[in-house]
């Protein structure tokens, strides 16, 4: 299956360069990023393989990248970029790839939970201005229907006074940011 995805008439690599100034052609495939990546062994494509796919600049590989699980497993720990001999800022590339994956509705099925978590997180900020952990977890569970996850940890946290059942509302501090972003989206 191959769909053509539009990146303003460019390849995904060209789009990345346009958005972040990073050229994936700098990568000479030494694999140092994959060697040090803490999540690499759980990824469908190791970081250096992702870059290789991008270097090919064809629709099929671009789609593989955007529908990969790897881009959602990246922990943004910066181990790769700290050691990259060619100074490729891979975490920044990952940020662009995730945005494109969402935009083109190509999110990997296995990554649904991870995306749901981040969405719940942002929802919590939108609603409360700050992170309210109980709210975040409830939101996440509703999204993913993982009702039984962490049933062991949560009561202990509660007992240790690590969780607040009642949120504090600081929504007003961020409402302008979110409404501004929404307006922007609508305009675009």
């Amino acid at each position: 299956m191959s769909v053509s995805i539009d990146f303003g008439g460019d390849s995904l690599a060209g789009w990345i360069q346009h958005k972040s100034g990073i050229s994936v052609q700098r990568c000479y495939q030494c694999g140092k990023c994959s060697a040090g990546c803490p999540a690499s062994s759980d990824m469908d494509f190791a970081p250096s393989v992702l870059l290789r796919l991008l270097q090919l600049q064809n629709a099929e590989s671009d789609q593989k990248v955007l529908s990969s699980y790897s881009i959602w497993l990246c922990l943004t720990c910066h181990t790769c970029s700290a050691r990259c001999p060619m100074e490729v800022d891979l975490p920044k590339v990952m940020d662009v790839l995730r945005a494109e994956s969402l935009r083109h509705k190509l999110v990997n099925k296995r990554a649904k939970d991870i995306v749901a978590f981040h969405k719940s997180f942002i929802d919590t900020i939108r609603n409360f201005g700050r992170l309210w952990e109980v709210g975040l977890v409830a939101d996440y569970k509703l999204r993913t229907r993982h009702f039984w996850q962490d049933v062991v940890v949560a009561p202990v946290m509660l007992k240790k006074g690590k969780l607040s059942l009642i949120p504090l509302f600081h929504k007003k501090f961020v409402s302008r940011i979110f409404s501004g972003l929404r307006n922007r989206e609508e305009r675009a």
Partner: peptide, 13 residues
């Protein structure tokens, strides 16, 4: 020594 085998899909070694 932590490396990767780029001929095996950059599998960690």
């Amino acid at each position: 020594v932590r490396g990767a085998d780029t001929l095996l899909g950059a599998q960690q070694v």
